[in-house]
């Protein structure tokens, strides 16, 4: 990295940011799409941070035992599905606060992953394959930046599909109605509780897959410091994206780029403000919320049943 940056000088910075944006954004993309689906059904799942870490651990362990990274991705998704089911079921009890349950599940998921993941810190599991889109360039930096993981591609396809599905499919309509007005959904005969539970479970599945990307591709190993709060950021990111799946995709790229800016600048010798760059996504989200909210109206695009809007 440092050699590459030396050769290209400051040009290495935007290149590293682009490459980083693609790499770093993938977990953001999956977690935020999952959170987007959950929130469109009217619930907030703050526990996706725990789900992400649980997915990373279970995916890594499965890939190690079976030798197949794709089996790892599947198991990571299923682990996330279970956590989503748990969140969805508990929050369906009357008077239970979904945000607080999320914090509890964040703690539980992290704890379980650290507990069960102890034996997997050392061994090396097979990673996910990447597609070389930078074959045309002789510059190693360009090749590195354009090494695209298959999961990223899947995520990029997922975003418009989810957007279309929410808009046009019957089930998408059910999700939107349940999220906007439980009363209207009930009047139409839609199952409110069941829809929210499965929307949370499906969201958990996506977040688990995002976790598998962390442990199986980038950074590509299991450790307790693996997640740098992507699960938390994703909740903010969905607000930033105004609950639009395509918005989640753009916002993931932006947040990924912001996350990659610190290390990229560090590689050309700018070490000042490294931590401040890490805080950029959070500050950005807070700024968006401050600008977009007002005491008299809710955020544009926010599902009406969401606790976040008032």
């Amino acid at each position: 990295m440092s050699n590459a940056a030396e050769a290209l000088g400051w040009w290495g910075v935007p290149l590293a940011v682009i490459g980083g944006a693609i790499r770093v954004s993938t977990p953001f993309l999956f977690v935020s799409l999952g959170e987007c689906l959950t929130e469109r059904a009217g619930r907030i799942n703050l526990g996706l941070e725990g789900t992400l870490i649980m997915g990373a651990m279970s995916g890594y362990a499965t890939a190690l035992h079976t030798g197949s990274p794709w089996a790892g991705v599947l198991v990571a998704g299923l682990a996330g599905l279970l956590f989503g089911l748990l969140h969805g079921a508990i929050c369906s009890l009357p008077r239970v606060n979904d945000i607080a349950v999320g914090i509890g599940l964040m703690l539980l998921g992290t704890g379980l992953a650290f507990f069960l993941g102890k034996p997997y810190i050392q061994p090396k599991a097979p990673g996910l394959p990447a597609i070389d889109l930078g074959w045309w360039s002789s510059l190693p930096q360009v090749q590195a930046a354009l090494k695209i993981n298959v999961l990223f591609v899947i995520g990029v396809i997922c975003a418009p599909v989810m957007l279309w599905w929410l808009k046009n499919a019957r089930l998408g309509l059910v999700v939107r109605t349940v999220g906007d007005s439980a009363d209207a959904a009930r009047a139409l005969g839609f199952p409110v509780i069941a829809t929210r539970i499965w929307a949370t479970a499906a969201g958990g599945f996506l977040a688990g897959v995002g976790g598998a990307f962390l442990s199986l591709y980038y950074p590509g190993s299991w450790s307790e410091g693996l997640s740098s709060g992507q699960g938390i950021t994703a909740v903010a990111l969905v607000i930033f994206a105004r609950w639009n799946p395509m918005g989640c995709f753009y916002a993931s790229l932006l947040f990924g780029g912001a996350g990659a800016l610190g290390p990229a600048l560090q590689s050309v010798g700018v070490t000042q403000g490294y931590y401040l760059f890490n805080a950029l996504p959070y500050a950005l989200t807070l700024a968006v919320m401050i600008i977009a909210c007002s005491p008299r109206r809710t955020l544009a695009g926010a599902p009406g049943e969401l606790g976040v809007t008032n």
């Binding site: 703050l46 945000i99 938390i232 909740v235 903010a236 607000i239 807070l286 919320m289 401050i290 909210c293 007002s294 005491p295 008299r296 809710t298 606790g307 976040v308 809007t309 008032n310």
Partner: peptide, 10 residues
């Protein structure tokens, strides 16, 4: 500003 205090504090 009507910003949700839970998310803001986090």
């Amino acid at each position: 500003r009507g910003v949700n205090e839970t998310i803001a504090s986090l």
